[in-house]
Amino acid sequence: MSNDHDHGPTHTHDGKLIQEDELPSIEAQILETSVRELLIEKGVVSGEDIRRAIEAMDSRGESLGAKIVVRAWTDPKYKDRLLNNSDDAVREFGINMSPMELCVVENTDEVHNMVVCTLCSCYPRPILGIPPAWYKRRDYRARAVREPRAVLQEFGTDLPDGKQVRVHDSNADLRYLVLPKRPEGTEDWTVEQLEALVTRDSMIGVSDVRLPSEADA
């Protein structure tokens, strides 16, 4: 045995503490069920209303975000609106961020942005839909602010020397969308081709947008 003791999931060999993710609160589940059943019983909403709302939430995904990103890549005036008046700019795509506000951060040759919510799992749901499971995990939330470069590397994102990393902790009333860099060599691409390139992870900022040839490498 190479180590001097068996250890559970509570710590690693370099002494860093890893807290387990919490189980869903049973009290919150009971409360949700009770309120939902009461609302249906009193005729405020129907089961079908709730089902349809869940379906609509689940159906949102990165394709909406990709449309916004590609519009910004191909229309400088839209990009200006998106960066400086983000709520109005996404409303043009039928997205309402209220009561939150949207903050769009642009990746450039000098700066790489990435987003995390250390306190819970705040995420631009009206644009990107349901957050990925890893985004809600305690290890991502703790490490993204503490050692963002190591986390980026684990996501396969190697940054060139000299590029600054800027982490955004989505802890209060803003929701964040990263405007990734448009890959070189896509100048002649159609909107549809470009939209197919833009991934969810590139809009969270744990990855760049890559050409298919690079992605395979």
Binding site: C103, V145, R146, E147, P148, R149, G162, K163, Q164, V165, R166, V167, H168, D169, N171, A172, D173, L174
Partner: peptide, 29 residues
């Protein structure tokens, strides 16, 4: 009133081992 505050990572974590100009931005009341 809510603001976004920019911190140097080296201010937050004395042993931060990224680049000196790495930053973190967060909303603070």
């Amino acid at each position: 009133m809510l603001y976004r505050v920019n911190f140097k990572q080296s201010e937050l974590w004395p042993d931060y081992d990224g680049q000196a100009d790495d930053t973190l931005e967060i909303e603070i009341y």
